[in-house]
Design a protein around this nucleic acid. Structure first.
Lengths: 391, 391
DNA sequence: CTGAAAGCGCTAACAA
DNA sequence: TTGTTAGCGCTTTCAG
């Protein structure tokens, strides 16, 4: 009597085994092309699997292998270009290695971060890649992973308290370059629209900002470091800029924690008829696509999102391939993209080669090559500069 | 002799059961607060679980319950604001119901779409939410889900061949409204930068475009429907616009398939010193944040991404709660947001109330209320209009 | 080259 | 209120 698979039930290796009068181990092996299985049975099994539209049950396999081939990812917000691009980078590598990716958002909430990390723990992810929420200051929910020997890699917004692998960019250097660039443009009172104070990246950027001033003998003015409050969106930048103006502050440049804030600030400045960059230059951070759309185009620092994702994933694979592989802290260098929003003097930029060293005099780390990333912007820039600020 | 849990092994309900001299079923029940368990044992179990840092193994539970409490999502690209926002909507509902979300990108590739859907099948997702890739024309990989009674809900880019639930916006109506609006602005030669031809949304938008022309006795000119080639990015819009100009075509308006294309086109127009909207008006589709940043701000049609995600998830929950619940095809209405890029005549917009009926004369579906969505843009618009095109 | 059997950790029907 | 037992579908040692 032939075995008829129940149409309301998924076909399993047992169904195939019965039909072929072999054991389920044989089927299991045949299905994954195990070399110790005879060609004939192998083919028979595979054909029947196809015929019955068999799909392996990864859940069962995970349970028995004690590995889910899944990477958990926690980001603050998915709808930020930066984070979704990081995820693409992670996914790309994961995909190539046959890993799945479960993505969770903390929505910038500590509480939710704890909950989703617990979910991920229960889902038995093989590893965790995280960029922490801006509220997080207790890290116990991450320590659990380490106790269970689940590799955890932080990216961008890393965790200061935990000894774990991480991949970040050189925020200090980026901020330093941006501010030094502004100084070379002739700016002397440079405001910084700062990021969420708990985040290391915010602190590093402030430090880069301060040190660049210091390096150029410009006194640091506490008043010019302005907190943008909670939120990293355009409206926060707009509000902060308005508050600044209302307070009678008139810096000649703004270095913003991130691009949306910079763009929001630009909106306010334009509304107040302040000329950018002539009266106030602006530099952002992240080099988001929007930067080339706003007018004038926004100078910014590259955060190689895709590469950051890839790197984080690569470190994860390293850890699971070699359980003893040491913690790795990767620091990617950043790059300053100069666009019109911060370009007061035209002459500096005409001679083709830029001395990157000049831009980063007292940074020990290797310096990113200073170059024009987006060709067309240079052309447009020529044009616009000559028309708008003939200086 | 007390049972000492192996530190190299996760604590399981068995460990707890042994230590407490109860059965593992009791532990299992106590852990989920089953009412038939005595308060005393319940507390003992829960305390010990905490002490041992017990975390349930969802894999085992899934296997035994034959449900993973997981929703699979396939989107073309994560790094599009639209899709990541849809996912946020899905996640929000999923999260509230204790469901996980596995997100996959097809990267606009048919081949990859097939592979990830197979992965999701093997992962035993309880349901699948999909927006298909622009290459997809064979749908067998989705039919498998239906054969296995796994609910599948398409959103935005739905699947014409499969009888499944779906949530889309009224693309036809949106296109109609956009084009009618342009006509009311005095435009007579309106070009359409069309989307990927395989997608239903592209076709619907073309139809809306055609019918609006028809309704206003403007002859349809094949030449003015321009394919943007593969890719929905800014550069595609730029190139297409340049090709159009090079071909000697000078429409007085462009209605683009999506915002990045519209913005790309605007860049080219500006480069060619064509005044927007005076010489050429532009309307996009999706109402992305960038629209308010570009100059002049871009008119567009709202695609309520978050709500689309929520709705798709809601339909999924409906399906799993009631296996027999019928297929549901939800059509959300869209809304035209008028900004400066398409506002040639000021007078039309001064009297407070807009007659939405006028804007959608021959559409049977209920019409979205035509209103200003983004207040500040109206103010800025007043200002700019008066300065730039005093008409 | 193939099979038997013992799990992986949890659930749930049935029994007590 | 609690325990017994039989799985869920697959992997993997060990034995043939």
């Amino acid at each position: 009597m032939t075995h008829v698979p129940n149409p309301y039930k998924e076909t399993t290796i047992i169904d195939i085994a019965k039909e072929l009068n072999v054991s389920k181990s044989t089927v299991s092996r045949a299905l994954k092309n195990h070399r110790s299985i005879g060609e004939a049975t192998k083919k028979a099994v595979q054909d029947l699997a196809k015929k019955y539209n068999y799909h392996p049950n990864d859940i069962a396999s995970s349970l028995s292998k004690r590995s889910t081939k899944t990477i958990g990812v926690i980001v603050p917000l998915l709808s930020h270009y930066y984070f979704s691009t990081v995820i693409s980078g992670i996914e790309e590598l994961a995909y190539k290695s046959g890993y799945k990716v479960i993505i969770c958002q903390s929505a910038e909430s500590y509480e939710r971060e704890v909950i989703v990390s617990q979910t991920l723990l229960s889902s038995k992810v093989d590893g965790l890649l995280v960029s922490i929420s801006r509220e997080t200051k207790n890290y116990d929910h991450f320590k659990v992973f380490q106790e269970k020997n689940i590799p955890i890699i932080f990216f961008d917004r890393i965790c200061p308290e935990i000894e774990a692998s991480s991949v970040i960019i050189n925020d200090y250097q980026g901020a330093f370059m941006a501010v030094e660039h502004l100084i070379k443009q002739g700016c002397r009172r440079i405001a910084h629209f700062a990021g969420p104070p708990l985040l290391l990246i915010s602190q590093n950027r402030i430090n880069g900002y301060k040190d660049a001033l210091l390096a150029h003998n410009i006194p640091f003015d506490e008043e010019l470091v302005i907190d943008c409050g909670p939120g990293l969106e355009q409206e926060n930048g707009s509000q902060t800029a308005q508050q600044m103006l209302d307070a009678g502050l008139r810096p000649d440049a703004i270095f913003a924690f991130c691009d949306p804030i910079a763009i929001g600030a630009m909106v306010t400045l334009k509304k107040n008829k302040i000329k950018i960059p002539a009266e106030m230059a602006v530099v952002g951070f992240c080099n988001e696509p929007m930067d080339t759309v706003v007018e004038p185009p926004l100078s910014s620092l590259v955060q190689p999102a895709f590469q950051i994702g890839e790197t984080a994933a690569a470190i994860f694979f390293q850890h699971i391939q070699d359980k003893t592989s040491p913690i790795e802290k990767r620091i990617l260098s950043t790059e300053l993209i100069v666009r019109e929003s911060s370009l007061k003097k035209f002459k500096n930029f005409c001679n083709g080669n830029f001395e990157s060293k000049k831009f980063c005099s007292n940074i020990t780390q290797p310096v990113a090559h200073f170059k024009f990333f987006y060709q067309p912007c240079f052309l447009r820039l020529l044009f616009t500069i000559m028309v708008i600020s003939p200086a």
